[in-house]
Design a protein around this nucleic acid. Structure first.
Lengths: 248, 248
DNA sequence: CGGGTAATTGATTTTGATCAATTGGTGTGG
DNA sequence: CCACACCAATTGATCAAAATCAATTACCCG
């Protein structure tokens, strides 16, 4: 049995993209670390520091924030349970991006870099799986650039909800048409590059067009195909469909 | 001596971010591949295919394109000589993003995945350097999300020119204040998420504020500090300053 | 006759102006 | 924190003219 059940969705996600041996899976499931809880607006890691641990999301949601000199913020990535939200810090430990909780209660598991580096050195299959995970994250980032750069506010918002729905479903946290999103509108606005007021308008429009309803923190999609069509959503970039080659 | 001198800037860039032994450097400099030339609007790799090679930019510029159902395009990454523009395809060979020339004459070196995978398997130091390179690319993507999401058109454009200037200088292709940019305004617009007409307005504004002049394909920056200040440019995200730890 | 240079042409890119649509800003009440 | 109204600012869309660039053709001279 694993000391931290929260590792299971993480290892499952890695296994869906990369082939891992029984051995390798056990090594990962046996990782140890320190649990920690964070409230929104508290930095998990602070830009400028050097990190020496990776954060596995246990419960709640987190996001990576960019900040402009004038204080406006832009979310560049949203992380859900099972995501190792700064796996990339293994390669670039100098923190350039703040990591914060989105939900009111975020629980993470801090896994020391030292331990992770030991493992990736000893098990090339794990190294490959982690490298591939970083690449898949970058693929999502590319899609975000397209989304923010070229889609209008409604389509853009619909696209984000499609992405989150699919990721939540894959992580075993509800279905793409019904999942919990512990996030307020101004945080969505920060993720989509718009103002909170406009975000509110768009949520109303989505509701009126019967594409999406949010009641409390619960997202309800009446007709997934309609939403995906409105968003121009193509899930290929999430790289959750197939298993890819391994190095050795 | 290396069969392909174009490999030298690539290996130099890797060495600036990761420690590589003499051996490892030689292995990389000794890579072989097939040269190819592309004109703009011709796909180097086509979405939907499986790639089996990586592209090293020898001369000219290339970009990664996202496309919406209605045909509008968004550039998600710009690549200059010395960049291995789809190193990530080693991990996710299914092509999700078109890769095209920006400049009229783009020369690339196609290095087979098979060979690259052999090398990263045999030399963990090289694997780490490549992994780190992928992570640095993702860091640039994050900054692009911030840039497109939260900066206004003028600041956004200034920021891109800062980034390109610094990358060109680091690659040994001119200085941050004077470099060649073989790219037309509508391509810049595609990179910055705006329309070509608005791009033109912004270029005029940059000229009038004496921040930037473009004559022919030559970018001229009169006062780098003024441009960087206007852009709110912080170069840390480019990860070109320091050398980081290696795994073994 | 051939090589190089200059002019012509056509296509592409840049520039500019005007109007429309989207998005941002502020404030109030639930 | 969400909803909604109002007005302002930024950006998008369309169109037309100028400027630039590329390729071809014509021309000159050795």
């Amino acid at each position: 049995m694993s000391r931290h059940p929260a590792l299971q969705p993480f290892v499952r996600k890695l296994s869906e993209r990369s082939h891992l041996s029984e051995d390798e899976r056990h090594i990962l499931l046996d990782l140890d670390g320190q649990k920690a809880e964070f409230a929104p607006h508290r930095d998990i890691v602070r830009p400028g520091e050097l990190t020496d641990f990776c954060c596995l999301i246990v419960s709640g949601m987190a996001a990576r924030f960019g900040q402009l000199p004038d204080g406006t913020r832009q979310i560049t990535a949203v992380y859900i349970p099972g995501d190792m939200c700064d796996l990339y810090s293994l390669m670039l430990p100098k923190v350039e991006w703040a990591l914060q909780a989105l939900s009111s209660r975020l629980v993470i598991l801090k896994v020391p870099h030292r331990k992770m580096l030991e493992i990736v050195r000893a098990y090339p299959g794990i190294a490959e799986a982690c490298w591939r995970d970083c690449v898949a994250d970058a693929s999502i980032l590319s899609q975000w650039v397209v989304n923010i750069g070229r889609r209008d506010a409604l389509t853009r918002t619909a696209h984000l909800f499609c992405e989150l729905g699919l990721r939540m479903e894959t992580a075993g946290l509800g279905s793409r048409t019904a999942f919990e999103l512990p996030v307020i509108q101004s945080q969505l606005a920060d993720a989509l590059g718009m103002t909170p007021v406009h975000m509110n308008r768009i949520m109303r429009a989505l509701r009126q067009q019967e594409l999406l309803t949010v009641r409390g923190r619960e997202v309800q999609v009446r007709d997934w195909n309609a939403l995906a069509r409105a968003a121009g959503f193509e899930p290929g970039y999430l790289a959750i469909d197939h298993r890819w080659r391994r190095m050795d």
